[in-house]
Design a protein around this nucleic acid. Structure first.
Length: 287
DNA sequence: AACCAGGGAAGAT
DNA sequence: ATCTTCCATGGT
């Protein structure tokens, strides 16, 4: 058992992170203890649990992180997932002079938090395509309960190899559409067979990743943008085609109709190079 | 009951 | 290249 105390640069509102994580029933969150238990795998893909507990405040963020083994590797993962090396203050300063200043005041200190693994992120994005959030969560939960594994009350996402071995009918039985079943299983097979190496994506540019992934059947621009944002934590993504983003902009600016692509391009110009945070807070504003 | 949902592929122009 | 249609299913 190892323990480590980490201080990071403010602002960082971890209680908001926990509230957000608790929306997904698969996450092992305790708002009372101010902690989340993370399902992480070591290099041998053996499941292990790392606990992250807030012991500070938004203005003096401090955390107690603990786990059972692989301290160094697990700490790197935690820092990556919660973006502890990024400072939110420059982002806040940047938006104070823009048409989103109010939104950024409301969400000050809210970080971008990544999915726990790139494969989870990719599968979740495919599952979420074109579905309302409620049903999408239901499908994701069924998927993990059916093919993932549980350890000490924490759910671990299935491995690509497991999903690669399924038949389309296995997912149809969970009320996946035939198309979605094909997208999920075929992509998992590609990953399991080495045709798509997720580990190597991190070293590529956004544009190269887009070009590479959209060639895969079932993965379009929206999915890649979401993977870049929530899988890899890239800072400058603005999924304009996303219905949620459009609705959020409509509401935030009191528009009569959903914004056009041109309008969105125009209003987002001053958000660069932090488009991802604008996207994130716009999404939050309608949740 | 009709329309929508944090899309994407396949076909048509 | 860009536009249209279809896919499937639960939510509102």
């Amino acid at each position: 058992m190892w323990k480590e105390i980490v201080s990071i640069s403010p602002p960082y509102h971890f209680d908001r992170v926990l509230e957000r994580l608790s929306l997904d029933p698969l996450n092992a969150v305790s708002l009372e203890k101010r902690e989340v238990r993370l399902p992480l795998r070591n290099q041998a893909k053996k499941p292990g649990i790392v606990t992250v507990r807030a012991i500070g405040t938004a203005d003096a963020p401090e955390f107690l992180v603990s786990g059972t083994d692989d301290q160094s590797a697990m700490m790197d993962e935690v820092k990556r997932i919660f973006q502890w090396k990024e400072s939110l203050q420059p982002v806040l300063d940047h938006f104070s002079k823009t048409n989103l200043s109010q939104l950024f005041e409301e969400h000050a200190g809210t970080p971008l938090v990544l999915d726990f693994h790139l494969y989870h992120c990719l599968m979740k994005c495919i599952i979420h395509q074109q579905l309302n959030l409620s049903f999408a969560y239901t499908l994701t939960e069924r998927f993990v309960h059916a093919f993932g594994e549980q350890k000490d009350g924490v759910w671990f996402y299935p491995l690509p190899e497991t999903i690669a071995g399924l038949d389309y009918a296995d997912l149809r039985a969970l009320q996946f559409s035939m198309r979605k079943s094909e997208y999920v299983i075929d992509t998992s097979r590609m990953i399991a067979e080495g045709g798509l190496k997720l580990d190597e994506l991190g070293s590529l540019t956004d544009e190269d990743i887009m070009e590479k992934l959209v060639k895969i059947r079932g993965i379009g621009p929206w999915t890649v943008q979401n993977v870049l944002l929530f899988g890899l934590g890239r800072p400058n993504l603005f999924p304009m085609a996303d219905i949620g983003i459009q609705n959020a902009i409509k509401r935030h600016f009191g528009l009569k109709d959903k914004p056009t692509k041109e309008e969105m391009l125009e209003m987002s110009r001053e958000w660069q190079p932090y488009l991802s945070y604008a996207s994130l807070y716009l999404w939050r504003s309608i949740e």
